[in-house]
Amino acid sequence: MQKRIVVYRRLPEALLAELKRDFHVDDFGHLENFEDPAFRAALKEAHGLVGASQKITPEILDAAPHLEAIASVSVGVDNYPVDELTRRGILLCNTPDVLTETTADTGFLLIMATARRAVELADFVRRGEWQASLGASHFGSDVHGKTLGMVGMGRIGAAIARRGALGFGMRILYSNASPKPALEEELGARRRGLDELLGEADFVCVTVPLSPETERLIGQRELGLMRDSAIFVNIARGGVVDEAALIEALDAGRIRAAGLDVFEREPLPADSPLPHMANVVALPHIGSATHETRHAMARRAVDNIRLALSGERPLSPVNEDARPL
Rank of each mutant, 00 (worst) to 15 (best):
L194C: 13
T95S: 12
T103N: 00
V6N: 04
L197M: 08
S141Q: 15
L183Y: 12
A161W: 02
T95W: 02
A104F: 02
D105I: 06
S316H: 11
R254E: 12
L134H: 06
A159D: 04
P314C: 11
I247E: 08
K55I: 07
G135V: 10
E84A: 14
F139A: 12
E215K: 15
K180G: 05
V50T: 02
K55S: 11
L260M: 06
G135K: 12
L16G: 06
L197A: 07
A270R: 08
V318P: 02
L134Y: 13
V7C: 09
L49M: 04
E84N: 05
S288L: 06
K44L: 14
D202F: 09
D202M: 13
G167T: 06
R265K: 15
L210I: 10
V98I: 09
A113E: 01
P58T: 03
L210C: 06
A122W: 05
D202P: 12
T100K: 04
K20W: 02
T102F: 00
N94F: 05
G152Q: 04
V82C: 04
A161Q: 00
A38W: 10
L225I: 09
S310Q: 14
L109A: 10
L110N: 04
A115V: 10
E68G: 15
V281E: 05
E196F: 07
S211W: 02
D78F: 01
L121N: 10
D202R: 12
L134T: 12
V6K: 00
L99R: 01
T106S: 00
L134E: 08
E18M: 05
F263H: 01
A252C: 09
G224M: 07
R4A: 14
T102G: 01
T290F: 00
F124H: 15
V206M: 00
E248R: 14
H138N: 12
H295D: 08
V233I: 15
V280N: 00
L187N: 01
E101S: 04
D27M: 07
E184I: 02
D303Y: 09
E13L: 13
S211P: 01
G193R: 14
M226I: 07
S137F: 11
P269K: 08
I56F: 00
V25I: 03
H295Y: 12
C93S: 11
V281C: 01
S272M: 12
L198Y: 02
